[in-house]
């Protein structure tokens, strides 16, 4: 049995006059014990999808199941089995770390002690601050506490809606390490994020944009589908370089990517020499150009422009 199945889900908002389609015929499966990422920018439909799966919203079309239960008819069974961390989830700011955790444990008919082994690794980092109010915690700490609260009843499937948004790079890294260790305990995890670089930490990802899924696969396979050669180029004047490369006749696509610009050529056969000549002719200095490995963000850009 799949942990999550989604078939042709459609979700629309708004009045009859103006409807916005948040999810447009979305289908996907999440296997048991899988760490599945839903990757896309704000407004892509990630939160709508999560709310439908956590039985908080009704879809306008399609079917979905979580742990074998239908999200519409059997929502009560689902609610007992899942853990959910909504986006911008901020806990009770005026309750202490321990009070928050105990509250959620009791609400889910369990106790901290009963499931302590599951959250131990995470909670141990919070324990020194357990009497501190949640509002006084840092972003990273809050997020760990929120995760503990979502886990405390030992859910079968864990839904994390943008858990790393607005969190600094160090805390993000730690958070993903925690997810990996949870995965080892057999919990299926669905996580959404706008950060493309987090895709590579998932078993499989769905790239979503404007309510449509553009690709579902393992990150490696998605990258493999990027068949064209990709070059990374830099020079002393990066902005002028970008403009010049975008003007170049054989350029299919060129965009900034960290310290380099990524360049895809219309005709791969020509190779890099004509590009170098072109740039030298435009008196660029310190030109560097080499083949680069595309990553998920390149694939996302590629899929977006199709």
């Amino acid at each position: 049995m799949q942990a999550v199945t989604v078939e042709h889900i459609v979700k629309k908002y708004g009045s009859k006059k103006e409807t916005v389609t948040a999810l447009d015929d979305v289908s996907l499966d999440v296997a048991q014990g899988e760490l599945f990422g839903v990757i896309g920018p704000d407004g892509a439909g990630k939160t709508s999808l999560f709310r439908i799966l956590t039985t908080l919203l009704l879809a306008d079309g399609g079917h979905a199941t979580v742990d074998g239960f239908d999200v519409v008819k059997q929502y009560k069974q689902i609610r007992n089995r899942i853990g959910y961390m909504p986006g911008k989830f901020s806990l009770y700011q005026d309750l202490s770390v321990e009070e928050n955790l105990r509250f959620f444990a009791t609400i889910f008919n369990t106790s901290i002690e009963a499931n302590y082994d599951l959250i131990k690794d995470i909670y141990i980092q919070l324990e020194p601050f357990k009497t501190r109010r949640a509002g006084k915690l840092s972003g990273g700490m809050k997020q760990k506490l929120a995760l503990c609260c979502a886990l405390i009843h030992r859910p079968v499937v864990l839904f994390l809606d943008e858990p790393t948004t607005g969190v600094d790079a160090v805390s993000r890294k730690e958070f993903w390490e925690m997810l990996k260790s949870l995965k080892k305990q057999g919990i299926s995890i669905l996580v959404s994020t706008p950060y493309m670089d987090e895709a590579e930490l998932c078993d499989r990802v769905a790239l979503i944009q404007s309510g449509k899924i553009m690709s579902i696969d393992s990150p490696q396979s998605i990258i493999k589908k990027f068949t064209k050669k990709m070059w990374s180029v830099r020079s002393a004047e990066m902005f002028r370089l970008l403009n010049d490369l975008q003007q170049y006749s054989n350029t299919e696509k060129c965009y900034a990517f960290g310290e380099f610009h990524h360049l895809v050529l219309k005709n791969d056969a020509e190779g890099m020499d004509p590009v170098m000549h072109y740039l030298e002719h435009l008196s660029h200095l310190e030109i560097e150009m080499q083949l680069a490995k595309p990553n998920i963000e390149d694939c996302f850009i590629e899929l977006m422009s199709q």
Binding site: N80, G87, K88, S90, I107, F108, A150
Partner: peptide
């Protein structure tokens, strides 16, 4: 407002 409602709704409460 602080989205705890979503979690409470999803709980068996």
């Amino acid at each position: 407002e602080i989205n705890t409602m979503e979690v409470l709704l999803v709980s068996p409460l």
